[in-house]
Amino acid sequence: MSALSGSLSYQRFFVEAKLHRDFVSRSHEAILKHAMRPLSPNEPDAERSGWCVMGDPMDIELDRSRLYLDGFLNLGLRTDRWAIPSALFKTRLREVEAQEKARKERDRLGRNEKAEIKELVTRELRKKLLPSIRAVDLSWSLEENVVRFFTHSKKTTDVMIDLFQKTFGFELVAESPYTLGKRIGFTDAQLEAWEELEPTSLFVEERSTEGAQAAQKKGAR
């Protein structure tokens, strides 16, 4: 999901706050605190997200010169995830459980023993694999206070909104017909009209099917 090449797919968010005079130095420290920390096989976390350089997921040093660009703060949201193939995991789990049963000369293993083996196998396989790495570009136009986030994935967006709030202390407001209208500038009368709006429908009775009629009733507000 790139801001740097190809076609652009993104959502817009707004920061409804005035930026502090020393925003650059303050925000850079905060970004470093929430920089991506790669997963380690010995840690329990199966997934982790943090900031990286836009377009370069492996750069988690986050040098200031690579982030701030003439009125823009550019970042990548990197997410690492351990993705152990299910078949591999099950096969290895069965092997280790069989070895353990043989070693203990028993037909069955207890719940705790099974959980321990599961953890052991997870760690063992993680050491042999690399986590999957995914990065999504984010560009914050500091003059407009607009954040463009280059994905439509809800899960990734939720992670970004949470990390953004933790890093900068600002809540993001997602774009919608109301927010765009508000920025364009509603008059008092327009705002009143907005509150009383009813959906327009070109519905014509004789063309409807039973299903459409039901949907019409359901969709009516």
């Binding site: 652009l8 797919s9 993104y10 959502q11 817009r12 439509h152 774009e175 919608s176 765009l180």
Partner: peptide
Amino acid sequence: AESFALRGLKL
């Protein structure tokens, strides 16, 4: 329509 999100903007 409901989010004004853009997809596949070709420049």
